[in-house]
Each structure stands twice: as C-alpha cells, then as structure tokens.
Amino acid sequence: MKTIRINKSLIVGVLVAVMLSACATSKDFLSENFARVRNTHQRIAILPFDVQFENPSNRSTDNTNLKFSKQEREASLDAQKEMFTYVARQVQKGHYEIAFQDFTRTNKVLSDNGIKLEDIARQNKADIAKLLGVDAVISGDLAIRITQIDRRSPQMLPVYRNNDGVETNVKLFDAASGEMLWSTTLSQRPNNQMDTPHHLSSQLIEQVAKHLPYRTK
C-alpha cells in the first residue's frame, strides 16, 4: 500500500493564508474618554452608510457636488438596515443594554430636515445626533471593489484582481462633544462565486454589530 505523507506545516500555512485573505481586521480605536461617557449613552442612531463603488458611473468627480448613484443609494440604506437588524439581535440576546433608534425614524428625521444621503458624511455628527434626539451616532462607509475577470481558473473558480474586495470603516460619535469615541475597520476579499458585494458587506457589518464597545457579555 502506498503511503501518503502530509506536510503539516504546509497545511497550516495554507489555512492561515486562506483565513487572512478571507477577512482582515485593523486594530480598533477606543477613546480614553469612552469609559467616562459610556453610561450617559442610552439611545444611539445608525446613519445610512457612505457607499462608493469602484468607478461609479453616476458619481461626480467634483467633491463639492457628490451625488449617489442608484446602486450606491440602495447599498447605503441596505447597510444601515442590516446594521440595525444585527444590533437589535445583540440587544435581544442581552449583549447590549442600550437602545438603538429605529432606522426608519432616523431616515425620516434626516429627510424632514433636508439632509440627503450623500451629505451625511460631511455633516457634523454632534449636530446630527442632537437633531435625531440621541446620545451618539454610528457612522459607516463601504468601499466596494469587485472587478471579476472573465477567465476561470483550472478549478473553474472566478478570478479576481489583487485589490478586489469590500472594506468598511465604522465610527461612533458622542452627541455632547462631537468626539469620535470608537472606530473599527474591516475588509474582506472574495474567494468564490457566492462572495457578492452584498454578501461580503453583510458579513463585515454583522461583525461590527457584534463588537461595539457597549458589549456587556
């Protein structure tokens, strides 16, 4: 019988490479003031995400006149809704002892005050928080780069460019001071046909929702 020898170090190396390519996390930032103001936060709002697709056809190159494309607009609201849904689950599980403003309420207040989706990123977050009647706001952005090459690998898997993937940066701002209290950056590269931009974004947002600095257990 032929004996097959397995190189354990090679297997470990491959597994590590797969894990690193699947999801990379930057170190979280946490303000020294967070512990002091944490107990003053009772209600938090999640803002629509600032979404940018690579080479979007409808986005103006003039930074003073940015306009979301239909695709970016839908992705912005989808990310906000998913974030709210995920944090609501964490509250139900007892992981957070704070309230999150319903995203539909947040969007109505923003709309009633003439604040467009593409304007949110440039707005003062303390002013928005006070407008929404919350103690803090969560602001996030998504950079989506999926430019799959048509050709297939010998294993019939799609081939992606080296910089393809989705990255999200999420920040928490205090209403009283406007200070950024916490931030995290997550990125993930596509590995198979199931890794659509929405799928990758949803995975990253879920991870963020599970690791907000308010977690009690």
Rank of each mutant, 00 (worst) to 15 (best):
T3P: 05
I6Y: 07
I6K: 10
N7F: 14
S9G: 13
L10W: 15
L10M: 13
I11L: 09
I11R: 11
V18K: 10
M19S: 13
S21Y: 04
C23W: 13
K27H: 06
D28G: 11
S31W: 00
S31C: 00
N33T: 08
F34V: 08
R36E: 13
N39H: 07
R43I: 11
I46D: 00
L47A: 03
L47M: 04
F49N: 00
D50A: 09
V51H: 04
V51I: 01
V51Y: 07
Q52N: 12
P56E: 06
P56T: 12
S57N: 12
N58C: 11
T61Y: 14
N65T: 12
N65I: 13
S69H: 04
K70S: 05
Q71W: 11
R73A: 06
L77Y: 02
A79E: 02
Q80A: 06
V87K: 06
V87Q: 06
R89K: 08
Q92M: 15
Q92W: 08
H95F: 15
H95K: 15
Y96S: 00
I98E: 14
F100E: 09
D102R: 04
D102H: 05
D102Y: 08
F103A: 07
T106N: 02
K108E: 07
N113K: 04
K116L: 14
L117D: 00
D119A: 06
I120T: 06
I120L: 06
Q123V: 00
K125W: 00
K125A: 03
K125S: 01
D127V: 10
D127H: 11
I128G: 09
D135H: 13
A136P: 10
V137G: 03
G140C: 01
A143Q: 15
I146T: 04
I146H: 01
T147C: 12
I149V: 15
D150L: 14
R151A: 12
R152K: 14
M156D: 13
L157P: 01
L157H: 09
P158F: 09
P158N: 11
V159N: 03
V159I: 11
V159L: 04
Y160N: 09
Y160W: 15
R161W: 09
D164N: 07
G165H: 08
G165M: 07
V166R: 12
A175R: 06
A175E: 03
S177N: 04
E179S: 12
M180R: 10
L181R: 07
W182D: 01
T184V: 10
L186A: 01
R189V: 02
R189S: 04
P190A: 09
N191L: 15
N192L: 08
Q193P: 03
P197G: 06
H198W: 12
S202P: 12
I205S: 03
I205V: 01
Q207P: 02
K210H: 12
H211F: 11
H211W: 07
H211T: 13
L212P: 03
P213W: 03
T216M: 13
T216K: 14
T216D: 05
